[in-house]
Amino acid sequence: MTTVLLIRHGRTSANTAGILAGRTSGVELDAVGERQVADVGTRLAGVPLRTVVSSPLRRCRQTSQAVVGPRTDGCPVVIEQGLVECGYGEWTGKALRDLAKEKLWATVQTQPSAVRFPGGESMTEMSSRAVNAVRTWNGRMEAEHGPHAVWAAVSHGDVIKAILADALGMHLDAFQRLMVDPASVSIVRYTESRPYVVTVNSTNADLGQLLQPPPKKARGRRKAVDDAAVGGGLGALPPVSADPDA
């Protein structure tokens, strides 16, 4: 029952310029992006991360370093090619306003499963290798740290949307309905029965509160914590105040 925090890199100058950066090397966080990821690092400082797994592109490596920067537990950063940005091929480096005039643009919006970018990757290929990377790391984290291990994957907007679509049981053609902002955190808990999407596109929630330890298993009900709560369940418990009158 490992839990993964899907973190999109912070804002870059390509984002503000409306450029599809893709796998262009050297694209860095801008000043706003640096502040965004520093805030993510602060929000995650109390979360027991075992590993941060990052796309190899610089903007994600910068974000990963910001996540582990405030920590004192020696949480490692590991590069994972499976989390790299979608291969946009000939679209890479072009303005989004110009790409919106291409015939393929409408298919990207409505039927991404049918899209192969000219000279690049198909969106189904991107989804498959990203989901496979996350599930492989889930298995590794559980084997090394136990079923309640928490780890982070730092990646890109379309990649994270594809991983979330898989966790939600959505067809890839519906993944454009998801929003994944720069420096946002989405959380998926994987169990033997199904993934549970804890939160999507969080930019200010108390992540420690969302990642409370699961309840202990009751005797004779080995899969109780994997079952969905009929009726919606209790939800996250409110923080306990030291002041009884607070």
Rank of each mutant, 00 (worst) to 15 (best):
R116K: 07
E121T: 11
P195A: 00
A165R: 08
P182D: 08
E125G: 05
T124N: 10
V197F: 00
V84K: 05
R219W: 14
T92Y: 13
M141C: 15
L99R: 03
L96F: 13
D181Q: 09
I79D: 06
R219M: 10
G120Y: 06
P214W: 05
A106F: 12
T203E: 08
L104R: 05
S202R: 04
G157M: 05
S127Q: 12
A153P: 06
F175D: 01
L96N: 15
S155M: 13
L178P: 02
G87W: 03
V77L: 01
M170R: 03
W105V: 02
N132R: 12
E80M: 03
K161C: 02
G89R: 02
P118S: 09
V108H: 01
L99Q: 07
H148F: 00
L96T: 00
A106E: 14
I187V: 09
Q209H: 01
R97F: 07
S122C: 12
Q111C: 14
K217Y: 15
W91N: 04
H148C: 01
D98H: 06
S155I: 14
R140F: 13
K103H: 12
Q109F: 04
Q109D: 14
S193C: 05
N201M: 14
G208L: 11
L164V: 00
E85M: 15
A165L: 04
M170H: 02
A218H: 15
K161H: 00
R194C: 08
E85N: 12
N201H: 00
P112Q: 06
M126E: 13
G89E: 09
I160R: 01
A183D: 08
K101N: 11
G93N: 06
A114Q: 07
S128Y: 11
R189E: 01
D206S: 05
W137E: 15
E102D: 11
T110W: 06
S193R: 03
A95N: 13
R129Q: 03
K94H: 12
F175V: 04
G157I: 12
N138I: 06
E142V: 09
